Simulated scan of single mutants.
Amino acid sequence: MVAEGYGMTALRSLDGASITVRIEGIPVPQGSKTIVRRAGKAWMIDANADKLKLWRGKVANEADIGLTFDAPVCVGYEFVFPRPKRPKFLRHAVKPDIDKLMRAINDGLVDGGLLSDDSRITAVAFTEKRYAEQDEEPHAVVTVTAWRKEQ
């Protein structure tokens, strides 16, 4: 898993090449599509287009910090959901799927300019979805860290 000149030991964390973004609100997935037909034409749209547009807008707003990663990056994700009165599992092992949550975040990071393209993501450091603790509001936290060439 080590690409030419890059490796896990080459991660920078506290020198300005690592950015953490917190997005308030209930995380929204991206991925499920619906077919729309009008006037003899058909196209596909996101099944949750209205909520997704608002969520990606929040992600883009938080990601718009005047810095763009245009190199390989490693990303970490944490998704925090409201705790139901009687959860089926102790962990958030219900919909939405974690990969669809990541997809919405990735596109929002590109929309906000933090990533030049989501293809720059070459590794995932961690991914977690969980229920909020008492007095904790739903949110997502994303950490983007640039890889650097080893000396």
Rank of each mutant, 00 (worst) to 15 (best):
D118Y: 13
A71Y: 13
R37F: 09
T20L: 00
Y131W: 08
A39S: 11
W43T: 01
A42H: 04
D99Q: 12
I121H: 06
G108S: 02
L115H: 06
Q30H: 11
M44T: 12
Y131T: 00
K85C: 07
T122Y: 10
Q30V: 05
A42Q: 13
V28C: 07
V94P: 03
S116M: 06
L52M: 06
D118L: 14
R130E: 05
S13A: 10
M102L: 08
P82D: 15
Q30Y: 14
L90N: 12
P72D: 02
F79M: 06
R12N: 13
L114K: 01
I45S: 04
V36L: 09
T68F: 02
A132H: 04
A93D: 14
L101S: 00
V59W: 10
K100A: 09
A47F: 14
M44I: 08
W55S: 00
S13V: 14
D111S: 04
S13W: 15
G108D: 03
C74D: 11
G57C: 07
T20N: 06
K88Y: 09
R86E: 14
S119R: 12
K129E: 02
V36N: 00
I26C: 04
D111E: 08
L14C: 13
K51D: 10
I35Q: 13
D111F: 08
T34Q: 12
I19Y: 11
V73F: 04
